[in-house]
Design a protein around this nucleic acid. Structure first.
Lengths: 250, 250
DNA sequence: TGCGCTTAGTGTAAAAAGTACAGAATTGAC
DNA sequence: GTCAATTCTGTACTTTTTACACTAAGCGCA
């Protein structure tokens, strides 16, 4: 039992929580399991890591095999290793999340539309998923929520050109809060991270909005200079409201 | 190669970055390796995870075996899994850090004082450590730096009763910056998280400072109400200075 | 006992950031 | 040309952050 070789009987997998943003909602890509264990349940895409494969490579492979996308924003979140988490043996899993532009991949067009589907994150969180994937999804969603406040990663979920309203909706979906339009715009624009494309939205049945583009180079420069991207979670009014509710219930 | 059993030939370990705070410096507990590989180099304490052991249990075991301490603040940071990171085979490692009150454990008193030692973190970062432990140490130090700004975990490193100056020095050591005394005190005290013990420091050759205690219960209550503990990184002057330096060099 | 050394402890004014809030402008559809 | 929908913009107020320097208290020693 203390023989070293006895330890080399475990495996590890990566699970990749693939986030997308569409129609004002944050989505997550799930696959329906076709075999036991957990046959018929929705699960996070993942795979065992090959013996000669780096973790990040494996996470990228999972993403690539499923969506055909490469060079995507990928972030390691946490490792889940409860002894009994996998029925087949000792398998720990390293959870990553990816942020993709949802237009770049739609399973509707593919042959496995039945088994691969974008799910609304809130709904997925309420659904029973395979393995410990509910916990993993929650953890990764919270990690994203945290990250988005502190680094401008939200843009990874938007098309290259977007309107300020779309950007605001994205933040509202991730932070699960309502933001003040004027203050949001003031804050975002004051960071000088957006390039005004001098183009307008097309095909909308109302006044079209201006299109902006994220200035990645400028961000990297500012970051090097110690600049801190930071957004608040919610309005003060909301915080007061939440607090008042808590007071009432407690 | 695609046979599932081929995957069950890996192992995983935990490494535990044990932080302490003493004499105004942030310290990390390292052990000197007595055998190959990396014999003679300093390394982070760690061990292979037993087949029937949870990751967190393993991290606690490592800590307990080394220091005899239990119920210590422990936080998972990240998993390191480069293919060639371990000479003995495919071993990935899950990095944790612990925060301990340094007075509770001093290796000077123990029989392995030669091989277990508190190191100044800055110096350890400049020393060549075994395996990929330099990267792990850096990552964990940065995680702590991040955490301490956003959660009141610093108190885990201090004795139950401490002075405001000690607390400030702790933050300065972790954030690697100088803080303004009056503003720091104002901020900390305004959070109402410290209990004034109405006691004074003893045995100091100057005016003794008041002793305070962290009010953990109150913090947990405030946290539930949506309160956000948050501290700034540095003074604006310093940020300006840093920026000016960068401008000069670039 | 008092002087010198060392660190503790304290307040304020100015600047910056955050917050609340409403109405006019633009476009497409009919 | 009027309606519906959405974009876009500014200001007054509140709160937080910042910069900054002197007095108070205890110890040690002559």
């Amino acid at each position: 039992m203390n023989e070293v070789s006895n330890f080399f009987k475990s495996a590890f997998s990566v699970d990749n929580i693939i986030f997308g943003f569409d129609e004002g909602d944050l989505k997550v890509l799930l696959i329906k399991r076709g075999q036991a264990p957990f046959k018929g349940l929705w699960a996070l895409p993942g795979d065992l890591v090959y013996p000669n494969e780096d973790l990040e490579t494996a996470a990228n492979r999972v993403l690539d095999e499923l969506t055909g996308l490469e060079n995507v924003y990928l972030e390691q979140v946490r490792t889940f290793g409860a002894v009994d988490r996998h029925p087949l043996g000792r398998v720990i899993t390293i959870a990553y999340y990816s942020l993709i532009k949802i237009a770049d991949f739609s399973p509707h067009a593919s042959s496995f539309a039945q088994t691969v589907k974008w799910h609304n994150v809130s709904q997925a969180q309420k659904t029973k998923l395979a393995f410990d994937h509910n916990i993993i999804l929650n953890t990764c969603f919270n990690a994203l929520k945290q990250k988005v406040r502190v680094r401008p990663v939200g843009f990874e979920l938007l098309p290259p050109k977007f309107t300020l309203t779309e950007l605001q909706h994205l933040y509202e979906a991730i932070l699960r809060t309502k933001l003040d339009k004027r203050n949001f715009r003031k804050k975002i624009l004051s960071m000088n991270l957006l390039i005004d494309r001098n183009e307008l939205q097309e095909g909308v049945p109302h006044r079209p909005a201006k299109l902006y583009q994220f200035d990645k180079e400028r961000y990297q420069q500012l970051e090097a200079e110690g600049f801190n991207f930071e957004l608040k979670e919610s309005t003060k009014k909301e915080r007061r409201k939440k607090l008042a509710e808590l007071m009432d219930n407690g």
